[in-house]
Design a binder for these strands. Structure first.
Lengths: 347, 347
DNA sequence: TATTAGCACTCAACAAAAAGGAGTGCTAAT
DNA sequence: ATTAGCACTCCTTTTTGTTGAGTGCTAATA
């Protein structure tokens, strides 16, 4: 990438910042006055012409000011954006109620984030692949149905009805099965349950090995739930606040994406796979893994609930979003989430 | 209400039906050709003038055709709409997967309904106030937490973590508590658990009466869940298909209503309270209990999962929605839902 | 050589004017 | 009672004109 001299950098930064605020193409005169460079608009014009040639800014039409290109935004995010010393006070709003239900917390979080940022937000429940089993309980609901309750680390409770032949399963045997399941599986992460362990389990279960395998199926099924990974969203209608996204076809597509949630999954996958230092990623325009959002920017963060149970938070807004604010918000939230579930019983 | 002679009725019906299809104001000439009345446009004009005076139709502006007023729609829905003999085939699409999870079924249903009708749809999980308890299980998850699992008729599973002081609660006592809870409460509907029963329960629980009351709280809380009554929605973006609703402020309001879900609750309440013969209700324009939807029409139906567990289905569209199709769809769905959960184990 | 004032030019955005057309209400004829 | 005919209304669309922000270029300046 070409190196920009200091003056060009300053001008580019000024253009982008002004555009972030106003959303209007920025003209040379504005920059001439706005910056402390003390240059006439004519000089700025020459520089802007250069910057356009280098691909950092773009002219919507002749006789208009300039707006940042994707490349320009990228440069801004990577090099120009300055750490703002936000007063922590503003962030204090993130007082998350410590409800026991994970679901509730997630709903609160997306909502809070959406109102704080004025963008559309999403969050996934953590994926439990590496979460450890804490407790399993099998109970007989009626003549032919068992209920399997599975508690994972972090008090995530899952349940599944198992329909099976229960001939000759009395209370005592059920107790034994429960004991067996718990002693064999507790403390194990899902991906630690291998074939050998399963075989051993079945052997010990004797005539009820069929039930054991159904239970294991239930665990896998209820825990992995890949096809309908739980995604919570909020503030989708915030996009109406940004005229460049609010025209009805675009708006419809975007809001549909939020409603269907299917498309958001690729966002999650991309952001989980791509390991970065900070865990926060910025997709500008067409960089986004989701086609629908090529006119938006997307910022994602992964949070972790200890022991590799990871979830994804996403913020979707116009390309001229307040990147700094969004990143700060996410960082703050990330640390809070990292803490909140870790040892829910310890405080 | 004034009585319309046959010719006026026919003309009104023609106007409304044409408008339902086109969404454009209907002129006299159109009706003159469309109907088999063999009347000139001039005659139609005179009749239309009368109909307008009677309040059934409205002129958006002087030199425009007529569109139905709310009163006109109401008359149409009450008296003019004809039972269509829909081929059952078309309805067959409603093959609902018999997954054990209620939640999944509901999600499928709204989605199906939304794609079938091209309107926005919602459905609530049934309210369990009258649902009977089938099974309760208390288990110890760790040192200071109990897990209460509550199964209601229809295999609706709820769970709740109870944090409490467990000093001196050993396994045996837990078993006893479980037994006590099940023998006392099973088969009871929620509103059948009265103070006397509670007192007796507590007495029998002895020193663990505190736990009992926490369990009861948990039951009430997890089952009633009034504040965030589960509502599933789909097809909210369908409103973009109807220009009269698609302008950005209106669209935003409507879609927000679907996102927040709060507003939808009053819809549910209204439709549940107002007992009608068919259980299907049509709200036209300002008749709607939700202010946001005063430019829409709303059709609701209540479904019942046996034993008074009622839920609500709603379809929200433009005033010129295809009422007949919507009502048919709802009727069909209603009967299917009524059946599907009744005795899930019997087939 | 870098900067800047000055100026002609471009073009979106807005407004006003003009043309077109669908539909009405009224009147007079059937 | 019905209808053809016609003047009138007013929305919609197209055309035309005006404005102003902003550019690029050139020539003057430090």
């Amino acid at each position: 990438m070409e190196h920009l001299d200091e003056r060009k950098t300053k001008i580019l930064k000024a253009i982008i910042q002004t555009y972030l605020e106003t959303g209007e193409p920025v003209g040379s005169r504005t920059i001439s006055k706005y910056t402390d460079l003390n240059l006439s608009s004519a000089t700025i014009r020459n520089e802007m012409s250069d910057l356009e040639e280098l691909g950092y800014i773009v002219q919507p039409h002749t006789s208009a000011g300039r707006i940042p290109s994707d490349k320009g935004y990228r440069f801004y995010v990577d090099h120009l954006m300055e750490e703002r010393d936000r007063e922590v006070t503003e962030m204090k709003e993130f007082v998350i109620e410590r409800t026991a239900k994970m679901e509730q917390v997630l709903k609160q979080v997306v909502k809070l984030l959406a109102t704080n940022t004025n963008y559309a937000t999403m969050i996934t429940a953590p994926q439990y692949q590496q979460g450890k089993l804490k407790f399993i309980q099998l109970s007989q609901v009626d003549d032919e149905q068992l209920l399997a309750v599975i508690v994972l680390e972090g008090n995530i409770v899952k349940n599944k009805i198992i329909r099976t032949d229960l001939n000759g399963l009395d209370n005592e045997q059920l107790l034994k099965l429960n004991l067996l399941l718990n002693t064999s599986l507790n403390g194990l992460a899902l991906n630690q349950i291998n074939l050998a362990a399963i075989a051993k389990l079945k052997e010990q279960a004797g005539i009820h090995s069929e039930i054991i395998s159904k239970v294991l199926d239930a665990i896998v099924e209820s825990v992995s739930e890949d096809e309908d990974l739980e995604i919570y969203t909020s503030g989708a209608t915030n996009i109406f606040k940004y005229p460049e996204l609010a025209d009805s076809t675009r708006a419809q597509e975007l809001i549909s994406a939020f409603e269907e949630k299917q498309q958001l999954i690729s966002l999650v996958n991309d952001s989980l796979s791509d390991e970065e230092n900070t865990g926060i990623q910025v997709y500008i325009g067409s960089e986004s893994p989701v086609q629908t959002m090529k006119d938006c920017s997307v910022v994602t963060a992964t949070y972790e609930l200890g022991e590799g149970m990871k979830g994804t938070i996403g913020i979707i807004g116009p390309k001229r979003m307040d990147y700094q604010n969004v990143v700060d918000n996410l960082k703050n939230l990330k640390s809070q989430l990292d803490g909140i579930f870790k040892k829910p019983s310890e405080e």
